[in-house]
């Protein structure tokens, strides 16, 4: 069989691919920001010495981390309408699912980040009369975040790749855009190849950028 890419014009990109690309980026961005905020709180809860804070957090994180993402996507798609008592679209369900799912992964990174900051930083903050909240938000968390920046970015690249799994509930993401275009022009083989190439270019450049940041942080230390 011969490959023929001639049908792949800017009109095709505009009408099929662009919509999916925007959704994939939006999903990544929302899940990243929401997941980081939620993940930071989960990490703080987990490091707390009050068991009623640390236990639920570690239960949540460990549970989500040991279930395949596809199952989590399906679970949320099943449960959210039951809880809200009204149907929601696949796209909205994806936003909620990825935020809660990523929070579990980001929280583990954040926890390692907080532990990587010397205990004396906290002690120094307390000696200056800062409250726990001030210590965390002005002293510990900024350092923890910077130490873990490369890991956060690596996790975000994985998140971007994982957004393609919304295939399971049929949301219109980048992969879906390629698939529909491939079906319309009866050229699925070429479309999957272009999809793979595009994902590769995006993820590869992001991971190179991450390496750059990693080296920059290393020098400062």
């Amino acid at each position: 069989m011969n490959l023929d890419f001639s049908f792949f014009t800017s009109a095709v990109i505009k009408s099929f691919i662009f919509k999916g690309l925007i959704f994939s980026f939006q999903l990544t961005a929302v899940a990243m920001i929401g997941g980081m905020i939620l993940g930071t709180f989960l990490a703080l809860m987990r490091l707390s010495n009050k068991y009623y804070l640390s236990l639920p957090s570690s239960f949540y994180v460990n549970t989500l981390r040991s279930i395949p993402l596809v199952m989590v996507i399906l679970w949320f798609y099943l449960l959210i309408p039951l809880i809200l008592k009204r149907p929601i679209g696949a796209e909205l369900s994806a936003f909620i699912t990825f935020t809660f799912f990523q929070a579990a992964y980001y929280s583990e990174i954040m926890r390692a980040g907080i532990l990587s900051v010397s205990k004396r930083q906290m002690a120094a903050g307390q000696a200056l009369g800062l409250t726990y909240r001030q210590c965390m938000s002005y002293v510990v968390l900024p350092q923890a975040f910077r130490n873990m920046l490369p890991l956060f970015m690596t996790q975000t690249i994985i998140l971007f790749q994982d957004t393609s799994l919304v295939y399971a509930i049929g949301a219109y993401d980048l992969l879906k855009g390629f698939e529909i275009a491939g079906r319309n022009f009866n050229r699925p083989v070429e479309m999957y190849l272009i999809a793979a190439f595009l994902y590769f270019v995006i993820c590869f450049s992001l991971s190179k950028f991450t390496k750059l940041i990693h080296q920059k942080i290393k020098i400062i230390h």
């Binding site: 799994l165 994902y199 590769f200 993820c203 991971s207």
Partner: peptide, 9 residues
């Protein structure tokens, strides 16, 4: 190559 393309693709 194998790391930067999503598994499903």
């Amino acid at each position: 190559v194998f790391r930067n393309i999503p598994l499903i693709i």
